[in-house]
């Protein structure tokens, strides 16, 4: 090695370089993107309002007289009802009012956190959901985190490794992404809980019982996000900035972890808001397989008995979570790709 590799090949200019016309180039990079967030918030409110409207319409769409239906659901049998019985129900649910009034009442209730009253249990929907929501949220968030870990490790290891390895990786992504939750859940339950006995068969709310349900949700999600990430990963590997990094002496792993990964996760970040909703609904199935407490059994029972206030309450809640998640996703995106702040 010649001794020239030190710093003195280039000396600073004798005269200070003239400063650029605008020193304010740094302005954009420090500022928080309020405009962007404000726009998203308006969009979020519109989505929530739409969700509430759809939920209301669903409730009114039940065929037949609603008071009769409510009584039948509560009693578990379909019989003729007396006008006195019906009047009480109409009074309780405000069904005697015109639809528009009912709609406005419904919206007002949602804004104040009142999601209505269950037909079957005769209790506030918010309370029923509140009792069961937490385990489902824990399960969902664990699953998404797990999916990210699996996906990032798998893609970083296999993407752009020559034709054979990467096609095995790509085929596995596709295959795994299409696995139904119920099937994967049953396989995992049979193998790891029933045969090997590593995990409890009935999960309940135990932390130990969290792993298999979370894994069941995580694997297809990892495959799904992996497809998008892999395509972007392999595209980034061929980008000039990666070649530049290699040219300055960086190794394959350095390039993958320090440059390519950041670019390649962007599509998966975008998907994460959607993934939250999909994972929560997947949780309904997984909770049923692993006998885990959560919103799942509440929802399935409610659908079976046509207890619509409970169903729509859950739907609105999940739409709200989707909206919140998407705002978080937008923020995460801008942190990873600051170029967006300018547009």
């Amino acid at each position: 090695m010649t001794p020239t590799s030190s710093s003195d090949t280039l000396t600073p200019p004798a005269a200070p370089a003239p400063s650029g016309p605008a020193g304010g180039g740094a302005r954009a990079s420090r500022r928080f993107p309020w405009r962007l967030i404000a726009g998203k918030l308006v969009g979020a409110v519109v989505v929530l309002w739409g969700a509430a409207t759809a939920a209301f319409l669903a409730q009114t769409a039940l065929p037949g007289d609603r008071a009769t239906i409510i009584l039948n659901i509560r009693a578990g049998q379909a019989i003729e009802r007396t006008p006195a019985e019906l009047a009480a129900i109409n009074q309780e649910y405000g069904l005697q009012n015109p639809l528009l009034v009912q709609y406005l009442e419904y919206l007002r209730g949602i804004v104040t956190g009142d999601l209505g009253t269950s037909y079957q249990q005769h209790r506030p929907v918010a309370a029923i959901i509140g009792e069961q929501m937490w385990p489902t949220i824990v399960l969902t968030l664990t699953a998404i985190a797990l999916a990210w870990v699996i996906m990032v490790v798998w893609v970083t290891l296999t993407a752009g490794r020559g034709t054979k390895v990467s096609s095995v990786g790509a085929v596995l992504d596709t295959a795994v992404a299409g696995l139904p939750h119920y099937w994967l859940g049953i396989i995992l339950l049979l193998v790891f809980a029933l045969t090997l006995g590593w995990f409890p068969v009935i999960s309940g709310t135990s932390p130990n019982g969290l792993f298999l349900p979370a894994l069941t949700l995580a694997i297809p999600l990892a495959g799904f996000m992996g497809q998008a990430t892999r395509a972007e990963f392999e595209r980034s590997l061929d980008q000039p900035f990666v070649i530049t990094a290699r040219m300055r002496g960086m190794g394959d792993w350095g390039v993958r972890l320090k440059h390519v990964l950041r670019h390649s996760v962007l599509p998966a970040v975008t998907l994460s808001g959607w993934a939250l909703g999909a994972t929560i609904s997947g949780a309904v199935i997984v909770e049923s397989i692993f006998t885990r407490s959560g919103i799942g059994s509440v929802l399935v029972t409610a659908v079976n008995t046509q207890d619509l206030p409970v169903v729509t309450g859950i739907v609105i809640l999940i739409a709200a979570l989707y909206v919140v998640a998407n705002i978080l996703v937008d923020i995460a995106y801008v942190i990873i790709d600051p170029r967006l702040k300018k547009s």
């Binding site: 519109v46 969700a51 769409a61 609904s281 309904v284 739907v315 989707y322």
Partner: peptide, 25 residues
């Protein structure tokens, strides 16, 4: 566009469940 975005906010299975709840299985 708004209608599409609102519907997209519902996960597939959940939207399907909502419809089953209304129509019956």
């Amino acid at each position: 566009n708004r209608i599409i975005e609102v519907l997209f906010a519902f996960p597939t299975l959940l939207l399907a469940l909502l419809l089953v709840a209304v129509i019956g299985p």
